[in-house]
Design a protein around this nucleic acid. Sequence first.
DNA 1: GTCCTTTTGTGAACCGGTGCACAAAGTGAG
DNA 2: CTCACTTTGTGCACCGGTTCACAAAAGGAC
Lengths: 235, 235
Amino acid sequence: MIRRLSQARERGIPEATVARLPLYLRALNGMAERGLATVSSEDLAVAAGVNSAKLRKDLSHLGSYGTRGVGYDVEYLIYQISRELGLTQDWAVAIVGVGNLGRALANYGGFVSRGFRVAALLDADPEVVGDHIAGLNVEHIDELEAVIRRRGVSIVVLATPAVAAQQVADRVVAAGVTSILNFAPVVLSVPEGVDIRKVDLSIELQILAFHEQRKTDRMTGGPTMAEEWPEAVDL
Amino acid sequence: MIRRLSQARERGIPEATVARLPLYLRALNGMAERGLATVSSEDLAVAAGVNSAKLRKDLSHLGSYGTRGVGYDVEYLIYQISRELGLTQDWAVAIVGVGNLGRALANYGGFVSRGFRVAALLDADPEVVGDHIAGLNVEHIDELEAVIRRRGVSIVVLATPAVAAQQVADRVVAAGVTSILNFAPVVLSVPEGVDIRKVDLSIELQILAFHEQRKTDRMTGGPTMAEEWPEAVDL
DNA sequence: GTCCTTTTGTGAACCGGTGCACAAAGTGAG
DNA sequence: CTCACTTTGTGCACCGGTTCACAAAAGGAC
Ligand SMILES: NC(=O)c1ccc[n+]([C@@H]2O[C@H](COP(=O)([O-])OP(=O)(O)OC[C@H]3O[C@@H](n4cnc5c(N)ncnc54)[C@H](O)[C@@H]3O)[C@@H](O)[C@H]2O)c1
Ligand SMILES: NC(=O)c1ccc[n+]([C@@H]2O[C@H](COP(=O)([O-])OP(=O)(O)OC[C@H]3O[C@@H](n4cnc5c(N)ncnc54)[C@H](O)[C@@H]3O)[C@@H](O)[C@H]2O)c1
């Protein structure tokens, strides 16, 4: 039982913890800007909107970086979390599908700030190919594999229409990319080992609507029993 | 123990289930378009990308809508899920912050399709106010409360810069809205009873980067122990 | 040094959710 | 009507994650 710290760090940061680390990082960056040198788990937890015990347990998975009676060194913790997340290196991102959403993403400054660099924009529409957006030339989707290879793209953002998404995903995966952020409202099927994260606007709104309905039902003493199954239902 | 069905339905659909219902709904709509009348839990589960036992358990929370030996009636299930999610009514959505992202959202057709109607666009920039986007006039943020009241807005989408988000959220909540979809990278603080869902691009990318790093580390037999804490760290 | 205060790191109970596996319920053939 | 087959609905064991609560560690006062 020699490798105490190593044991904690190695091969096993819970997924739920990984998802919160960026939150802590953001809060810490704010604190660093305001000149704070150290922060307690309680304060950091409040800033990140979580419970302080959870925060401490999360951080304990990275190692023992706090000082009892004092708290955590802000700069040091920023470095450790950044390193853990892989933010100390530079990630080349390609955006495929340069429509409404793809353009917004390309123009968004928030990526670059933390190790992510938009390295390529790709689209199938000849009307769009050749456009200059955020200092980048939109290239034709035929160039996909070449662009991924040449620019060392390791993360692809999918912002094509739903029908094209699977087909593009297949090519992207075949080209060796194993991390995809998907905005198209489809369930992508990819081989083992490929990570997909999806952002789905419409699902978020539907979840809000569900709770909103419950809230208003409760007020108005809404229907408690299933009503009759009416005739027509639009899609 | 009289009210079996009611007991199942009433006051208690697990949050995880609610988050999956939109997925099932989407898959079902696809099947309805292709003319399928019934579907087995197995097939629907595959289409939605989940385990079939999970799907059955999820659906059992809404009631007993399947037929053993046959499966589920596609149209009927679409109706039941829609009703449960509150999609049989029309929701007025306001988008606050009509920049890159706000515009993309306003132009997006995917909302309207399922009970959500963009009823207002609001911005603080006089340059933007008055623009016509997707058939809507961009109104000044000063009109926020009046617009929410007059158009019956019950869901607000926040697409302002991070610094403005909390302030806008406070006004939105004060105006009686209890459902917010937040795109700004901040932890919003709102009173009990207000539902916030956040969509955070940057967090998604960071999670992908984490796993990507692990994958490449494993291949190259990367560092197993924490390295030295280097001098400077950029934010 | 001793004592008091602060705050971390974690053991352990708890909780929501997942998935296996199967009885119950339905269909259809003969 | 019976038998073979299909598929749902769910009991139950399990698992990851959350939260409480506290011992252990650190710092400061004297
Ligand atoms: N705009 C939004 O706010 C929003 C919100 C939620 C989800 N989405 C989803 O994001 C995706 C993009 O939305 P959008 O509004 O930007 O759509 P869009 O139609 O404006 O843009 C899609 C772009 O993809 C390109 N494209 C089509 N097929 C392609 C292919 N095979 N390879 C490369 N490029 C291809 C098109 O030329 C077009 O430029 C859609 O799947 C949409 O459902 C968008
Ligand atoms: N564009 C993206 O792809 C993207 C991705 C992730 C997150 N975000 C986040 O979404 C938000 C919007 O991004 P964006 O790229 O559209 O920014 P943007 O600067 O293009 O647009 C912001 C808009 O909000 C308006 N605004 C500012 N203060 C306001 C106020 N008090 N009330 C009403 N409107 C106000 C501005 O006038 C501007 O039109 C930001 O918080 C950003 O961090 C954007």
